[in-house]
Amino acid sequence: MDPAADLAASPQDLPPDAGEPLREEAAEVASLDEALVQRLAAQFSDTGSPDAGITVLRDLLRIETRRPRFHRLLRVWVGKVTSAVRAGDLARAEAWMRGLLVAPTYPAEYADLVAEAFDEVSDPQVLDDLVVRLAAADPPGTGAGLVAVWGERLARYLVQGMVVEEPPVNRRYLVEFLSWIGRSDVRLVAAFVADPRWFVVRNVAIALGRTGRPQAVPPLESLLTHPDHRVRVEAMRGLFALRRGEAVAPLVGALTDPEPRVRHAAVSLLRASPSREVVTALVDLLETRPPVAAEARRLVEIIAERSDPAVPAALERLAGRRRTMGTARVVRDAARQALAGLRR
């Protein structure tokens, strides 16, 4: 209602008591009764909330039809995000990011301007600042939401950070932040499993393992046959973490890996695995494709250590093998020794 348009008001609208004596109540300064004050107080909430700015942003994104003005609005948005990052106010930065990018209110025809703005706010200098703030944040994990909403552009920056000689923060932070992105969208991290640099792929495998998402399992499984053993080790660990130790088959498969460090890692993980499948799988391996003698003996020890009711029967099965030679004999003898230990 624009006051200039209040033409309906009659110029004859005088107060009904004009000419009457000033009533006592009119002569007193009017005060608000308690009920009215309470109704008013109930209507105004925390007026210091950052939501006001986001509310205005989203309204303006929706209603602004002039391209130059829309562009100006996005410049303001860039300023808000970058100043929040620089001030270390990660919650506020996240609020501004979400205000633009989540459930967007802007018309599709301005998507190019939004992409431009997003590129601008993803400037390496801004992201350098961001990762430093994230690494220093207390408690650890603060800013995970911001990282997740930043998404692909940040993921690319983090991967690039693993390559440079002196990243702004320790690379372990870059890996951790990458896993935060993966928690929101595994695909953004999985996109890097084909990177030609082994150390990148290794870090990506670590990040995938930390996402906690079942969608990360297929890309990790694809890395079990990676040419570099360090990648294979982290892929195993990642799968172990994602499946909470139930990923027995890949671990057993790794026991015949040509690289000893892979085999050792597999042994450690199997030892830590709570799965009931471990005993069966190891017995099967020892009977059909036993590794070298020393490792075979260790596998028998692993079986014997487990608090699994199937263990005695498994050991008896291995101990009862006849006419054995070489590694098979080592397995049989180790099993008999383990059984004797159990009976003592």
Binding site: L57, L60, I63, E64, R69, L73
Partner: peptide, 8 residues
């Protein structure tokens, strides 16, 4: 909206 943008 002009004013809001300037203030924002």
């Amino acid at each position: 909206q002009e004013g809001a943008l300037a203030i924002l």
